[in-house]
Computed example of a mutant assay.
Amino acid sequence: MQPAPESPRVVVLGEAVAEVLPDAADLVVTVQVHDRRRERALERLTGRQLELTALLEAHRAALGTVSTDAVAAFPEAGEGGRINGSVATTTTRARIADVGAAGELAVAVAALSDVSVHGPHWRVSREHPVHQQVRTAAVQDAIGRARAYATALGGRLTGLVEVRDVGGRGGRMAMAAFAVPGGAPALELQPAPQEVTGQVEVTFTMSVPDPEVFAR
């Protein structure tokens, strides 16, 4: 007995895009000090980092996680390449859960001595319902595309073989680095809408195409 012929398959990529306001942001803070003596540079760095930690703790209600990404200490070369001191630096990343407080926090941190700030980097959190919305819309897009292909071949969809998550992404917008000497002015930031995409690869079976399609 001859095995039954395998049903034709249609493989499509479904896509969906949505724009939403960000519900989270990242603030990257770099503390950098210079001193002729390495030990003194590290002592000053410790003091500045404690000031930063205290400030962030005072804004704990608006923050998510806070982590130190990097610590570095290295010689500082002057004219002619001669070593004339040491540089000590730390980089701290603060996740902001309350985007409405991003401007106030960024300015407060930038007002600290020996500190530079980069951000806020707006983002859409993983928990935001838009991610599920674009995934669902991507599947619907895949069904529509596959149905159109099957119809163009004189057939119809008959079943589902596989659904593969290709992934998605949430857009980000960065604010330039800045430092604020002296008194910190008020700064109101307007978060830009973020683009969130969803993609899914879906394989369907379809009925045997109409032979007349290929005879045209």
Rank of each mutant, 00 (worst) to 15 (best):
F74T: 05
A106T: 07
T197D: 03
A177I: 13
A184P: 02
L160Y: 09
L112T: 03
V87C: 10
A111H: 09
Q133V: 12
L56R: 02
G168T: 05
M173A: 14
R93V: 00
A101Q: 10
H128F: 10
V109H: 03
R126G: 13
T92H: 00
E195S: 06
G103E: 10
R93T: 02
A179Y: 07
R37H: 12
R40D: 04
V107Q: 13
P129E: 09
H59M: 03
A70R: 11
A62T: 08
E188P: 03
V208L: 15
H131A: 01
E39G: 02
R147H: 07
L27Q: 04
D98W: 09
H131K: 12
V180Q: 05
V109Q: 09
E51G: 03
P193I: 06
A138I: 00
V71S: 07
V10P: 09
T90Y: 01
A186Q: 09
V196I: 15
A77V: 08
P209L: 11
V124R: 03
L52N: 09
I83V: 15
L112Q: 00
T53A: 14
G168S: 08
D210Y: 09
T91A: 11
R123M: 12
R48K: 00
V202G: 00
V33W: 03
G183S: 15
V130C: 04
S125Y: 04
H128A: 12
V163K: 11
R95H: 06
V213Y: 03
A73E: 05
R164W: 11
A70F: 03
H131M: 02
R164F: 12
A184L: 00
H118F: 14
T92M: 11
E43A: 14
I83R: 13
V134C: 11
A102E: 01
I83D: 09
A186M: 14
R93W: 04
R36C: 05
R147W: 09
A150W: 06
Q133K: 07
G154T: 04
A108T: 03
A54S: 05
L189F: 11
E195A: 06
L105Y: 06
L105P: 08
Q133I: 09
S7M: 07
G167Q: 02
V33A: 01
H59I: 05
